[in-house]
């Protein structure tokens, strides 16, 4: 049990305060994320009543109460959400991404992107965003490229691309089957393909010239893809930095 609530129960409480306590106990994990105004609206009571309740517990006010409750919830390992834990996990994942990078491979990709050969960048759905990000920056650095966000356009273009064209395809997970045909065609035609994915067993890997695989975890919410693709953005940012350096050194 939470000591803070135990302590409150031992105090002589008014009727309203008993109701507040019952509400706090029932919603402990969400209280720590709520502000005083929202709470009042839900409890049909005034700020002052809640602050007085907190002061009765020997605390300076509502914020102090939230702080204390958070600490006690954490100690009791109650299922609540703590953002700092999430952020440090996310930082660790970011460092893993960096540590796992093969810089030489990214330098090789940078050489290809800046070679002046026709360049196509493909990404659709959420992967369209890293694709567009790279395309705009390459433009800003005077390396033009063509952005493709439609699958059908890719299927058509792949037959007509110039023989020395380079195709950079960004695809997270699960969609690889859609690109098998264009990748096979690219291989037959001898085009250079670069694959950025987070699927280690992607069926596209045998057909791509260079594959970069990140540790982005595939996440779904109600069958919608919510994989944030931070690994993709990190890889792309490093390619951008390498490109910018090359541009500077010219």
């Amino acid at each position: 049990m939470i000591p803070l609530f135990e302590k409150a129960r031992a105090l002589p409480l008014t009727e309203t305060e008993t109701a507040i306590l019952a509400y706090f106990e029932a919603n402990a994990s969400s209280i720590i994320h709520k502000n005083l105004q929202d709470l009042c609206a839900q409890l049909y009571t005034s700020n002052a009543t809640i602050v007085r309740f907190c002061q009765k517990l020997g605390l300076s006010g509502y914020n102090d109460f939230k702080y204390q409750l958070r600490r006690e919830l954490r100690q009791s390992a109650a299922p609540a959400f703590y953002s700092d834990e999430y952020i440090s996990r996310e930082m660790a994942r970011f460092k893993d991404t960096i540590a796992a990078l093969d810089i030489r491979q990214l330098e090789e990709i940078t050489e290809l992107l800046t070679s002046g050969r026709p360049l196509y960048i493909y990404g659709t759905n959420l992967s369209a965003l890293p694709a567009r990000y790279l395309q705009i920056v390459l433009n800003a650095l005077d390396y033009p490229s063509i952005l493709i966000e439609w699958k059908n356009l890719l299927n058509g273009l792949i037959h007509n691309m110039h023989d020395d064209a380079i195709l950079l395809l960004i695809s997270a997970k699960g969609q690889a089957g859609n690109y098998l045909l264009p990748f096979q065609t690219a291989r037959e035609r001898g085009l250079t393909t670069i694959l950025l994915t987070c699927e280690r067993t992607s069926p596209l890997i045998p057909y791509s010239t260079i594959t970069v695989c990140t540790n982005d975890a595939s996440e779904e919410f109600h069958h919608t893809d919510v994989n944030p693709r931070l690994g993709f953005f990190t890889v792309i940012q490093i390619i951008i930095e390498l490109t910018a350096r090359k541009k500077r050194d010219l």
Partner: peptide, 19 residues
Amino acid sequence: AEFTSRLPIFFVINTIVQC
């Protein structure tokens, strides 16, 4: 033509949404 890194902004947005 500006090309300031947006990686930290992607990081912030992702943190807000995932949290």
